[in-house]
Design a protein around this nucleic acid. Sequence first.
RNA 1: GGAGAGGUGGCGGAGUGGUCGAACGCGUCGGUCUCGAAAACCGAAGUACUCGCAAGGGUACCGUGGGUUCGAAUCCCACCCUCUCCGCCA
Length: 419
Amino acid sequence: MHDIRSLRADPQAFDAAMARRGLGGQSQVILALDAERREAIQRVEAALKARNERAKAIGMAKAKGDTAEVERLMASPVDDIAAATSEQLARSEAALNDTLSALPNILDAEVPEGADETANRVLHQHGEPASLPFKPREHFELGEALGLMDFESAARLSGSRFVVLKGALARLERALGQWMLDQHTGQNGYTEVSPPLLVNAATLYGTGQLPKFEEDLFRTDDKFLIPTAEVPLTNLVAQQIIAEPIAPLRFTALTPSFRSEAGSAGRDTRGMLRQHQFYKVELVSITRPEDSDGEHERMTGCAEAILTALGLTWRRLFLCAGDTGFGAARTYDLEVWLPGQQAWREISSCSNTRDFQARRMNARFKRGKDSVFVHSLNGSGVAVGRALIAVLETHQREDGTIAIPAVLQPYMGGLTQLG
RNA sequence: GGAGAGGUGGCGGAGUGGUCGAACGCGUCGGUCUCGAAAACCGAAGUACUCGCAAGGGUACCGUGGGUUCGAAUCCCACCCUCUCCGCCA
């Protein structure tokens, strides 16, 4: 959500910021709505003032027992402009709100220009894509050959974009999630949270999924399945005035994420790269404004450490303007190298939303006598399903067995390989 | 799911139609007193929007949204949430 005051103060800057997102001039329309709204407020409040004065006078006359005065006042004309104007006020207020809440966050000045992912900038890389002495297989070939990955059953149970994992592979998924969670709570100072997986519309509005991206969500009668634990974790501070977060509030959770994948029909249909449901360990930080940039680097580092410890090859991307998500001011993506697919694939996305979400959810802290909007950040630390894929493809051997990374072996009952 | 009770300011808790943004207590902040502190006493203090250069006005907010009324924290309706009991249930 944008601050109408700063927009008023510098409309050109606002338009320039939206232009980086490929959006045409917005400020004219918004300022017109704002002027309309404020003008309506004036009229409504004037009418209300007149009404209040009259009512108060009647009350005083009655208290004095001055029935003549009461009757005179009751007979005096009432200002009925209020009804029409208040409707107009409600309309322009709603229009202004709808417009503002559908506009994406203002990008950080350092975000690379560019319309799509081809303009993303690689910041650094860990390891080199390995040239294996045999033809590496894709994760679903490996999983199915082991008899531990079953797409047919999943399709029968649920439809496309689901998978059934079995035996040691199911355990490996669990091990990944447990181990990552333990890293973040044990080494990185995050507090583990077990949040609701169904949330209401206000909560999704707070983090920015609503109103614009409803089609990406699964919903029940009156609730939505979370598309990421970012939603409940960040909203923990919604509507709150918390103590000043001198040290950032850090939350982590291992949850399923549910995504309708509307609009991605036909993409990544083989295997478990793009599913309607997947586990993810999420990281969320709530900070003071002056701390959020540093926290963003730290958070991304926490995710990178996970990938390194798993023996994966990865790189950090600085997403360009056109590829940065709706709520983010700046985003780093982490990509892992998938030998079977011979491609870099996203496994984590870490964003600083600054006060964009905080404004939507009215999350503040007290500084002196002022209430200041917090900054909120979120990042995957990391996607469990995709980490599973990366582990399979990276640590596969020619005979189809898979070496289990040392850090996971304690979580696998000492098992050192699959197959 | 059924029956009942209830949701008021940071907290507790009054207030059932009129000058109520709301008594009182606690807590908070400032002051007096004190070497200092405590106690006591005095005083201050909500949030948002809006008009204004400012000083300072105005409006709204007593779970949420409607309604009745000249006027609503107070009356009516719907919904949400909490608690108690019953039923069901992992």
